[in-house]
Write a protein that binds this DNA or RNA. Structure first.
Lengths: 232, 232
DNA sequence: CGGGAAATTGAATAGACTCAAAAGTTGTGG
DNA sequence: CCACAACTTTTGAGTCTATTCAATTTCCCG
């Protein structure tokens, strides 16, 4: 594979740590944004509102939520430090963005972004890489929602979240869950009860240990990996 | 809403008509690609192969397929004229691309795309708009797969496909299905049998008419629209 | 036409859901 | 710092939607 293939992907992730001081990476957007602090459970932007801003997570965690007319709820994504939101929106936000934990974000006004895109090739290219990464992640989730069982979904989720949280090369042995069971259920297309039952099942099989409601230790990561691919 | 918000979205669609002569729209990629004809059921690119090219559909229809180790199949997308594939790929294709009908595509070598991105701001910005559109569509499908019933999924699918096929402003009253039931099932996260049963159910309720296996007429489009949102 | 694949229909099953209750956790005020 | 209320999570029992397996029927293509 030639070097030219790597270019589109340049999503950088920093370790996830609530309230930690995070230095913002060098990026074409530097200086365009303003810092915002969002308390737990507060809304950053509302589904259906004009998409006036793009946000980048500095610390904490957010969920992007969409509601069906009858009240069914779907969590499209969890946003961790380094993640963006609002780039692909048309004129209105298609999702509400809510803080799962106390969170700090940088808000970039869309007109400023648009202006940047018009004038800077490298900036467009940088954002293109970000959106490509998001699309790629969305496609992984399509497979998960379309073809995986409850157990496979949860195994996949735990591993993916753990890997996103820990930046170091060694595979994580535990994962923090800043969101509650209901959020996980709506993210994985299942119910709270099923999430709970699957966690219990994994605990009984000694694959995980539920240190507390918000922290899960991997006792046998290999078994989780097998489960996530449907190989057990 | 100010005009600046519109900029990112500029996905153009042409009428879907197999074997029709299609004039390629003015785009920054003009001249970089070469035309390729793909026979029905033939593969354009293979899951796991080096992602050396980006493709644009001229006429026909493709499916992008992903397989789980145990053989479960997931159709990530159907590509119709005007659609792109391969932009968001990293170094290997994450999906196989197969022709659902005889199809013509334009193939753009990735190095040429990368070169273009490096030198042209407008080109980067154009592709950014395309990928944003793809991400947006993927998110609609996440909601569908995560939270909709079999009936809602099929109603949503039929309407969306019909609207993609007909470019004219008037809402379509029928839809062509170039793919078979298995493809639809793997796209909507269900089984062939369930697809068939739901179509029969809609026919019995006189909401659709199954003109033949590959063409469905909407008898009561409003009812379909209600069903697609879970309002009936 | 005739053979083979695709689609539909049927019957029984299974995985996840709903409703309900118990157990655990958290936040707050005295 | 404890007690209590409110909420979250877990567990249980029964139900339902979509699946699996099987049998036709329909549709193509040669």
């Amino acid at each position: 594979m030639s070097a030219s293939h790597v270019a589109l992907h340049s999503v950088t992730r920093r370790p996830y740590r609530i309230d930690a001081t995070v230095t913002v990476s060098k990026s074409p957007l530097d200086g365009l944004g303003s810092v915002m602090v969002v308390k737990r459970q507060r809304t950053v932007s509302e589904q259906g509102a004009p998409a006036d801003n793009v946000y980048k997570v500095v610390s904490g965690a957010l969920r992007t939520v969409r509601l069906l007319p009858d009240g069914r709820r779907h969590v499209a994504n969890f946003l961790l430090p380094g993640d963006f939101f609002g780039l692909a929106e048309h004129d209105e936000y298609t999702h509400s963005v809510e803080a799962v934990a106390d969170t700090t974000v940088i808000r970039y006004p869309r007109p400023a972004i648009e202006r940047l895109l018009l004038t800077s090739g490298p900036a467009s290219r940088h954002l293109l890489g970000l959106v490509c990464g998001q699309l790629s992640a969305a496609q992984d989730r399509l497979l998960l929602l379309g073809r995986k069982s409850a157990i496979e979904r949860l195994a996949t989720f735990l591993l993916a979240l753990a890997d996103r949280e820990s930046s170091n090369r060694t595979r994580a042995t535990a994962v923090d869950l800043p969101m509650n069971r209901g959020d996980i259920a709506d993210y994985l297309g299942m119910t709270v009860e099923t999430v709970s039952r699957v966690l219990t099942y994994l605990r009984r099989r000694r694959i995980i240990q539920i240190e507390n409601v918000n922290r899960i230790v991997f006792l046998r990561r290999d078994a989780l990996e097998d489960l996530s691919l449907g190989e057990a």
